[in-house]
Amino acid sequence: MPQLRQSQVSLDDTAYYRCVGRAYLCGEDKQTGKSYEHRRQWVEDYLLTLAEVFAIDVCAYAVMNNHTLIVLINNKLRRG
């Protein structure tokens, strides 16, 4: 069941958060032979653009064929 962000994120406990998104993002579709590898750069660029807009810093990320891992920090806490 979905939860409100304010009940998921506690800045008093930690400023770092790990996010995992599962989806077929890139690589080659074995059934059609079509390549979606171009999406890997798009996901990376978009992630870094969002980090510039919102109050987060990206500590680490990995864009894989079937999911993306992201470690974020709330930069409001880090910058005081």
Rank of each mutant, 00 (worst) to 15 (best):
N65L: 05
L48G: 00
A62W: 00
V53T: 11
Q8K: 13
K76Q: 15
S35F: 05
Y61I: 04
T14H: 09
Q6W: 04
T49E: 14
S7I: 08
L48R: 15
L11R: 14
I73P: 00
V9K: 12
W42A: 14
M1Q: 11
D45K: 08
G27R: 00
T32I: 03
K34I: 15
D57Q: 09
N74W: 04
C26P: 00
I73W: 03
R39H: 12
W42C: 09
Q31A: 12
E37M: 06
L72H: 03
G21W: 10
E44W: 00
R39F: 01
V20N: 02
A15Q: 11
L48I: 07
G21R: 07
Q3K: 13
A55Q: 06
W42F: 09
C59N: 12
R5L: 14
V58E: 04
R78F: 10
E52P: 00
Q41T: 11
W42S: 04
D13K: 10
L4E: 13
G27N: 00
D12E: 15
H38V: 00
V63P: 07
L50A: 02
A62V: 13
S35C: 06
L47H: 01
D29I: 11
N75W: 02
Q8A: 14
V9S: 11
R39N: 11
G33V: 04
R22D: 08
V20C: 06
M1K: 10
C26D: 02
E52K: 14
G80H: 12
K34W: 09
S7T: 15
G33S: 08
C19S: 09
V58S: 01
R79E: 15
L25Q: 04
W42D: 11
D12M: 13
Q3Y: 10
N65R: 11
S10A: 14
I56M: 07
D45N: 14
N75D: 15
D29M: 01
Y36F: 13
I70S: 01
W42L: 13
C19F: 08
H67E: 07
Y36S: 07
L77G: 11
Y16E: 12
A51C: 06
K34P: 00
C19A: 14
Q6M: 07
E28L: 04
M64K: 01
R5S: 15
C26H: 03
Y61Q: 06
L25D: 01
V71W: 11
L77T: 12
M1F: 13
N66V: 00
M64T: 01
Y61H: 06
E44N: 03
Q31F: 09
